[in-house]
Design a binder for these strands. Structure first.
Lengths: 251, 251
DNA sequence: ACCAAAAATGCATAAAAACGCAGAAAAATG
DNA sequence: CATTTTTCTGCGTTTTTATGCATTTTTGGT
């Protein structure tokens, strides 16, 4: 690997994750920590990163992909993503919505895994360009500016032509009685279409979304195949027995 | 093999594979590494590649963020973008391809301007989410990972339903005899469809792309409405009279 | 203040680049 | 057409660069 190539990778990783350890870089790039340090020194010399003891920090503040430092409950979301990624099998066709939990999910897809991903989120698509064996199909339509996802009739029509094994939905709110609900009207329709297009529905759900209800209905809880949370089975039994009683698979 | 011929091959290979080793080039071209290095030095002198220890990298990198530091010929591109943005009128429907020059163009769209933009580039779409009065329609399809644009039959089909006032195309290569040509086969097809969908074709073209030819034909020069360069009319007359003779409007 | 981890330093080695040169080929010149 | 000049290319030599390892120094936490 060329030195500049390596430095580009470092820069990319630092800017994405806000911070990075020399040790991790050394392992990731398969070079000695010495070399990593030299690279970090050069990049820091150009002001492209901030070198600190043990690694480096990003200097750039404005980034368009998600900035992990600004994701709330990052650890919880990483736990969820880790569980969720284990549901994906070689050659699967999956649909992924937007949101920070799904962002962690696609970041964790291993390099060797060959799958096809449909998505309507710009940031998710960007991350996926780095996965060598993932075929990405972007669902076009009207761009919703705040969420950076496409919506509208074009999206629904495109989804009607799709057949996926799994659908990973970010969750706005989940309740036993109202099922899955959504803040945004247009997004609720797109999610319905995504569910229609998939054999199996997986919800990525942080604890704060449980027992919540939003304005627009997406689907009843019976339609959900699997809910992925960061909670242990014990905690679930203790605090969320009402969900377990619905028969939906919680992992 | 002619020197020029060899350098064309190098350029192609670098742009296609993003990086290349001198050693591999030497073997591939059946010349000494010395000669390869001399070629790389010449190309790097013209800013067409980035020469590094062990080989070379493409100057055209992925744009993840609005990181102006990594854009080559930034000033030239800003000049071009400034001229180009003045062609846009209130309520226009425009199509924009990818590339760094278009990136500058959309960045310069004033906040008050109400227009509709079709694009197939993730980075362009991301920038446009910041423009309050721009309606963005993203053209979905298979994602080309290095360029971060969508291609394929879905893109062509979607474009067949579009009617735009203006089409701003980034330019890979422009010559009087071969017209507009493109490095990537799939992109060449998408560009054809974009041209079909528009009343008026505008090329954003840095000087280094003039009198160059790539493998895949997009359209003859007669189909081009306006070419936007950073050059003055005087310079154009002096150095590029052959283009002016075609009757195409150069600004 | 002590200790483990991280960083700097010096050194060795291999790879790549630069340099100078020479011969062959191509282009220019009279 | 002959010959002079220029360009192109490869080779041997020297210089520079990149990288890892061993050793010493610094740092930050407890």
């Amino acid at each position: 690997m060329l030195k500049e190539e390596r430095q580009q990778l470092i820069l990319q990783k630092v800017n994405r994750e806000r911070k990075i350890l020399s040790k991790d870089l050394s392992e990731f790039l398969k070079v000695s920590e010495d070399t990593v340090r030299r690279d970090l020194n050069e990049l820091a010399g150009k002001g492209m990163i901030l070198k600190v003891h043990g690694g480096a920090l990003a200097t750039r503040q404005k980034i368009y992909t998600y900035d992990e430092a600004s994701i709330s409950n990052l650890e919880e979301k990483k736990t969820i993503a880790e569980k969720a990624v284990s549901l994906i099998r070689e050659n699967h066709v999956i649909i992924v919505t937007g949101g920070t939990t799904n962002f962690e999910l696609v970041s964790m897809i291993p390099d060797h895994l060959s799958i096809t991903v449909y998505t309507y989120s710009l940031s998710i698509a960007m991350i996926l360009t780095e996965k060598p064996n993932v075929e990405v199909l972007f669902i076009g339509g009207k761009l919703l500016k705040n969420a950076q996802v496409t919506v509208g009739i074009d999206v629904i029509k495109a989804l009607s032509q799709v057949h996926a094994d799994l659908c990973f939905l970010g969750t706005s709110a989940l309740s036993v009685t109202e099922g899955l609900t959504e803040i945004n009207y247009e997004v609720s329709h797109v999610k319905k279409a995504m569910i229609e297009a998939s054999d199996n529905l997986v919800l990525l759900c942080t604890e704060e979304k449980l027992n919540m209800v939003e304005r627009y209905k997406v689907c009843p809880i019976s339609r959900v195949g699997t809910v992925v949370t960061s909670l242990s089975q014990n905690t679930l039994k203790r605090k969320y027995a009402n969900f377990l009683a619905t028969g939906v698979d919680f992992i």
